[in-house]
């Protein structure tokens, strides 16, 4: 088990290192003079912002210092939590701006990913080898999983928001309200949260259902299932055992899908103008706020790494073979 975690942590550590290096390298080795083109491209009116930007970039690139020194400085700033100042929301530091958006993104992505995973697996397991249900779950699953996240979001917003008028289609809460801890505000928050949640949930659902269905069929054909059936075990019991085996690859699948799910959350937020990281990234791109963009990038990478590690722990809890250092340990 120690070997398993050691290996995983090594990979995550290296990944973080690569991500930070990429983040440092791309602005540096961009063709042309980075500072000048960045300030010119930023297109900002506040002279204080221009000055801060130039100073920050000059400090960041540190022309008088050798390359390795600049690279170490970048890491040092990172560990101080210093991501620079946002250009778009000058003079707020990037870390504060992102800190304000992250709760919204987490509140959207964590429930939708977990619920779609649980419900999708149940649905797929139930549909497998049941003719009628299979014939509906499978095509619907393929359509859902092929949909671009933002398109289902737009369709839901149009149908349930604009046409039916049941749900609001923009923002994290009503414009007339200020964030506070009253019940009316929380209800309003929930009301705005429903549609983005639903669209994320639905798109992810299809993939899990199909994956589970295929796994269950595979497991039901295996020797242990046939043996159980030959012993006269009830079909329910056999399915239960098949499900427990089929869930393991689905856990690995969840880890592999994290990047796609985060990307889906970002574009869904943009559709609903939901005040999370996605909308922030859109604003950063529109306003050429590169510090904000780089900060958001690192936050996403760190978030995905942490989620991966949690899934690894869950895998150890669920699969006893990893604890005994057996076959599953390398999965």
């Amino acid at each position: 088990m120690r070997r398993y975690f050691g290996r995983k942590l090594l990979i995550y550590g290296l990944t973080f290192f690569v991500a930070v290096t990429v983040n440092w390298m791309i602005p540096r080795f961009m063709p042309g003079d980075p500072v000048a083109s960045m300030v010119a491209r930023a297109n900002i009116t506040q002279p204080a912002a221009v000055e801060a930007m130039r100073r920050y970039y000059s400090g960041l690139f540190g022309f008088d210092q050798p390359l390795w020194q600049q690279y170490l400085n970048f890491w040092a700033a990172l560990f101080r939590g210093d991501f620079g100042l946002s250009i778009w929301l000058f003079p707020h530091p990037v870390s504060t701006v992102i800190g304000g958006a992250v709760p919204y993104t987490l509140a959207l992505i964590v429930p939708s990913v977990l619920l779609s995973w649980v419900v999708g697996n149940r649905l797929g397991a139930y549909a497998a080898r049941r003719k009628l249900l299979d014939n509906t779950v499978l095509p619907v699953g393929y359509v859902l999983t092929a949909m671009p996240y933002m398109w289902l979001a737009v369709l839901l917003a149009w149908a349930l928001g604009v046409l039916a008028g049941v749900f609001p289609v923009a923002g994290g809460y009503s414009f007339s309200m200020r964030p506070n801890w009253s019940w009316t505000f929380l209800l309003d928050l929930l009301h705005h949260w429903t549609l983005p949640f639903l669209s994320l949930f639905l798109v992810a659902l299809g993939g899990w259902a199909i994956g589970m269905r295929n796994m269950i069929i595979y497991e039901l054909e295996s020797d242990y299932s046939n043996y159980l059936a030959a012993l006269g075990a009830p079909a329910r019991l056999i399915r239960k055992y098949a499900f427990r085996n089929a869930v393991l690859p689905q856990i690995t699948g969840l880890a592999l899908q994290l990047g796609v799910l985060v990307a889906g959350a970002l574009v869904t937020e943009i559709v609903f103008a939901y005040p999370g990281l996605g909308s922030l990234i859109l604003k950063a791109i529109q306003n050429k706020d590169f510090f904000l963009l780089q900060g958001a990038f690192l936050f996403i990478v760190i978030g995905v790494l942490i989620a991966n590690f949690i899934i690894d722990i869950v895998y150890v809890v669920v699969d006893p073979r990893t604890r005994a250092g057996m076959a599953g340990a390398r999965a």
Binding site: I11, Y12, L14, T15, V18, A19, V22, N23, I26, P27, M30, L256, L258, G259, V260, V262, A263, L266, I281, I285, F290, L293, Q294, A296, F297, I300, V301, V304, L305, N308
Partner: peptide
């Protein structure tokens, strides 16, 4: 394998975001 795992874990869209925005 190590290289594959590293690229696998990094969220693709986030990397593309940085590359596209800067270049």
């Amino acid at each position: 394998n190590m290289l594959t795992n590293i690229v696998l874990v990094i969220p693709t869209l986030a990397v593309l975001l940085i590359i596209n925005a800067y270049l």
